[in-house]
Simulated assay, not measured.
Amino acid sequence: MTMPFVVPRAPELPDATWTAYGLTSLMVLPLVVRSRAPVAVFLAVLTAGALYVFTVDGPGQPLPYTGLVAFYTVAELSSPPKRLGSALLTAVAVLFSVGLGSDELRELFFSLFAFAAAYAFGRFTVTRRACLRAVEDRARQLELTNRIEAEQAAARERARIAREMHDILSHAVSLMIVQAEAGPVAVRTAPERAEAAFDAISETGRDAMVQLRRILGVLRENEGPPEAPREPQPALAGLPGLVERVRGSGPAVSYEVTGHPRPPGPAVETTVYRIVQEALTNVVRHADATTVRILLDHGPEALTLTVTDDGRGPGGGAGLGLVGIRERAAAHGGTARTGAGPNGRGFRVRVTIPRTRHEREPRQEPGTKTVTEQRTGAES
């Protein structure tokens, strides 16, 4: 608004006065606080402009820039009633200003268009700010969701590793304790049995170390070379060897496979192996049993594992081992039931893992028996 006071004017036009210069300054200075009081600043700018037009014969401007800025701020920060009142007041001011000036329709439309554009830009700023807030909120929510999912995944992984460590150490240490306790007695009565007991302790310890190294290697997989070899997880083929190691600790263990064996998948095979391992560990540590029967039934709809012993029967049922058995079965959509054995004697673990639809598809070939039975161990 001060450009006419800086650039020399035509000789036929009146010179700019200090009064006119002061009024133009009054039209600009209120814009400093326009964010705090947009309507008050807008009224102040209109009042200063009216005083300039009616009291001072100063240089004019093609557009009232301060009025456009003030009206933009009202559109951006004010409530709907205040915006409506300011818009009506602006239309009246434009009509009077054009009527006192050139009184041309073209100038009237141009001025109304300019103020409408200022109002539209003000509302667009509000919409843009709301969109940015929504995007930021979604980003924060996504970050929170990702963090929660990462924490849950870490918790599941810690629980899985804890189960693996518990199964490996509990089974190995239990067998080693039983063999170590029997060793001194065997040294005095049957030296050859003592030697076998110490061999069993050594073999059990080496097997536990191998499995622990495998788990620790997985935990440190990012530190080693990507081509480092990894041993496979235990599977159903390893159950006979597990049974043989436990049989050397005292109880007579039998292992039977019935039904039509079909590979249930590596994850399920590892789960079954770990459940058998934990069940046998409980037998060695707590049951004081003489016989244990392991039955693995490959049914058409589910894989069923039953481990039954003739020991002292169920205890509290709240040990970490039994909890781990239930968690392993639930991870594959299965169930695990534990309790007293037949006729209330001993203890029985029964785990049912449903087959997937792909596993349930019939794949029997000509000449294949519908029932296959494998027996390993002592016959009672």
Rank of each mutant, 00 (worst) to 15 (best):
A10Q: 06
F347A: 01
A182N: 15
G183P: 04
A37R: 11
G319Q: 02
V292E: 04
L112G: 04
A252F: 07
P59D: 05
L236G: 02
A134P: 02
G317D: 03
E107T: 09
A120W: 15
L89M: 14
V187G: 04
G346Y: 00
P300W: 09
P354S: 04
G224W: 10
R350N: 06
I325H: 00
V7Q: 07
C131L: 12
A197Q: 10
A37V: 08
S170V: 06
G311I: 03
S380C: 06
R36P: 01
P184A: 09
P229I: 14
R262Y: 05
R360F: 02
V41C: 03
G248L: 01
G316R: 14
V56L: 02
S78L: 05
R214E: 15
A228D: 09
L29Y: 00
R34E: 03
S35R: 15
G333T: 11
P354V: 01
S249Y: 00
E136R: 14
R247K: 03
P81E: 09
S170C: 15
F42R: 02
Q141H: 10
A235F: 06
I325G: 00
R193F: 10
G377A: 02
V7M: 07
D15Y: 11
P62E: 05
P300A: 13
F54D: 05
V268W: 01
S102L: 12
L144F: 05
A196F: 10
L77K: 11
A289I: 09
R230I: 08
V94D: 03
R312T: 15
A93E: 06
T308I: 09
E151L: 15
E269P: 00
E327Y: 06
V178G: 01
A50N: 05
T47N: 04
R220K: 11
R206G: 08
R83A: 01
A200Q: 04
R285I: 04
L95A: 13
A172K: 03
P251C: 08
Q152V: 15
S170D: 11
R158D: 08
A228Y: 07
I148T: 13
V284F: 08
P314F: 05
F121Y: 11
A87L: 12
V178H: 05
S86Y: 04
V45W: 00
V33M: 09
V178Y: 05
L305R: 06
M27N: 04
L296M: 09
E203A: 13
P366H: 05
A180S: 12
V253P: 01
V292S: 08
F121I: 13
S78D: 10
A48I: 01
L26R: 14
L108M: 07
V94P: 03
E107R: 14
R357L: 08
T270M: 09
L219M: 13
V323G: 12
R230D: 07
K82D: 12
A194S: 12
A10I: 06
A155W: 10
E379D: 10
T308E: 07
V257T: 10
G324E: 04
A40L: 12
E244K: 12
A116C: 10
A267S: 14
T145D: 12
R147A: 13
A267Y: 08
P300G: 08
R285C: 07
R158E: 11
L31E: 01
G316S: 15
L219I: 11
S174V: 14
F110N: 08
A48W: 00
F42Y: 09
V272W: 02
P314Y: 04
